[in-house]
Design a protein around this nucleic acid. Structure first.
Lengths: 328, 328
DNA sequence: CGGCAAACTGTATGCGTTTTCATGTTGTGG
DNA sequence: CCACAACATGAAAACGCATACAGTTTGCCG
């Protein structure tokens, strides 16, 4: 099962066998076939560790996400994985569950793997860690946080703009009291999302905005809705930080007999598949997760030293059935 | 960034440094501290590849799943990952999307990684591949397929029994025409699930069962419901192979104005979190995904050569709001 | 204080590849 | 038919680490 055995069986040296198996130029087609045949017969699979150690460029890319359970992260991951596989790479996933402890251990893990590239699609990264990663030799791409450097690409969705669109849409429907439903990851893009709402508010002086937060899950959304309803009973719209929480919110509202959108409007964010299957179907902001995943992967797979790059993605409003004018 | 540099900085040999960093017995606490300090200062992270190559036992376990998008697989994966991390292992994930081509390349990939263990939680594995994996030196655990050997553990949910429970529950409610909603993975446990229904039927001669299938997604469930409604308009219950498809089915029924459960009953399988958030909440069979994931991981992490083992899990009926008596 | 065991530390080897460099080997134009 | 290129192949040196084995120090008992 080692290269040596394949080489011996084919009657060549390991050098030649290696060249054949790696499609390196220079190998007579007769020997080539012999080697290929031997490898096949022996069910040879190269030892990745030896390969990397011997100086071959690693063909693994690492992906760290905050919460793989949330379809947003999952969709991005899937797109990364698909793109990677198409390019002959494989991907190593780490999930932090919004815990900075797990984030650190994930980064250590990734470092140990000597990856070709690393994608950090997390919200809880602190400045020090970003700095540390930026100093690495491997290409890094951050989603939503950090800034572009040499070797680090930055992709971000313009949440501010998205939230402003949402706010002005709701305002135009007549809503004046809205509550934002967030989750506990108070750093990074999430806070930005909430701040964006506040800033949108400044344009509309008569708009009142409150905030509640819970876990980034269906159940968390449900609990957050309870809070919102108890603390801000007069509000007419619940703006959720993502679709998953919005579906949880919907569930709680239904349980309490509040009709959506007649009594209260609800919005999500991300336009995850689930949002179309919610009852009622969610009004949300579309974020192109496929494109994000593909872009991430392409940045990490490019052979040449990547230039300092930055991508900004504009989310788009998708109106469905969960929003309407506030009750008279 | 190599062990050598750490050793040099600490004024010891690489052997000593290695021993300290691996908690191997024998190291004076003064030198130990020096090494630890040096490693810290240099932000040293051991090269996993070199480590494995040098003969250390690999601390990675591989997980192959059919469709990571389905929360069933996701939950199992999460449980595996959590257990692995707790034990100092990391996990490498591969997703096949029910494609046997991708399955094969995933297995090759895993082989290259020289893992500590491999979990195959897939339905599309053919006998030849099972055989090949069984022959490997690494411990393997199959979920739902294959049979226990030396070095291979088997975990399966008793779908037959689960489906029988479901069938008799629906029968007792008065349903006589049901249609099973499956997906395209016709091999392995899925087919078993459908067959189980047929076998359950034999007990009730007046029960009619039809079958439709589409993709294992929300949208697939929706399309399958369209098929079911068109082809079998007289049926009073839709038994879905899992919760995700059931939610898709629910959506289509609602779109067509068919009330659940007054006009038609719907059941899922797995008792995924989403099932409680569906409208109406899904009647389903609970499958303990946490326990499955934990068990898988423990089998793979045990140091001693694992005995031939087999686990069979009994799913349990969870009645919610999506089932009721058929219309009169 | 001598000697021996126990505790500690260093040297050197090998893990399975890739890759550089040197050594054949074949082909081609003069 | 010779010489010289272009090509094909092999030998051997890394890569970074763990570990067997040898060597060194320390502590303890007589």
């Amino acid at each position: 099962m080692t290269l040596r055995e394949v080489a011996r069986r084919a009657g060549v040296s390991t050098a030649t066998a290696s060249r054949v198996l790696n499609d390196t130029a220079g190998a007579k087609s007769s020997t080539r076939n012999r080697v290929l045949k031997a490898a096949e017969e022996l069910k040879y699979s190269p030892n990745l560790h030896a390969r990397v150690l011997a100086g071959a460029r690693s063909r693994s890319i690492g992906v760290i996400v905050s919460n793989i359970e949330n379809p947003f992260f999952l969709d991005v991951y899937k797109a990364v994985e698909a793109t990677a596989r198409a390019g002959g790479y494989d991907v190593i996933l780490a999930n932090t569950d919004y815990s900075s402890e797990r984030l650190i251990s994930s980064i250590r893990l990734m470092a140990g793997h000597r990856l070709a590239g690393l994608a950090a699609i997390v919200s809880e990264m602190d400045a020090e860690l970003i700095e540390e990663l930026s100093g690495q030799a491997v290409p890094v791409v951050f989603y939503g946080i950090g800034t572009a450097h040499h070797n680090v690409t930055n992709i971000r969705v313009d949440y501010r703009s998205g939230m402003e669109k949402l706010a002005s849409y709701l305002y135009s429907l007549g809503h004046r009291r809205i509550v934002c439903v967030g989750h506990h990851a108070s750093l990074g893009p999430i806070r930005e999302r909430l701040q964006a709402v506040s800033s949108a508010v400044s344009r509309y002086p008569d708009l009142e905005v409150a905030t509640v937060a819970d876990a980034d899950t269906l159940e968390g959304g449900r609990r957050a809705a309870r809070l919102a309803l108890d603390r801000h009973p007069a509000s007419t719209a619940l703006v959720c930080v993502n679709d998953v929480m919005a579906v949880g919110v919907l569930r709680e509202l239904r349980g309490r007999g509040r009709r959506v959108p007649e009594d209260v409007s609800v919005t999500g964010f991300d336009n995850v598949a689930l949002s179309q299957f919610a009852v009622p179907a969610l009004t949300t902001m579309h974020v192109p997760r496929d494109e994000i995943g593909r872009t991430i992967c392409e940045c990490l797979m490019s052979d040449d030293v990547p230039p300092t790059r930055e991508f900004i993605i504009e989310p788009e409003l998708v109106v469905r059935d969960s929003t309407g004018p506030p009750p008279a």
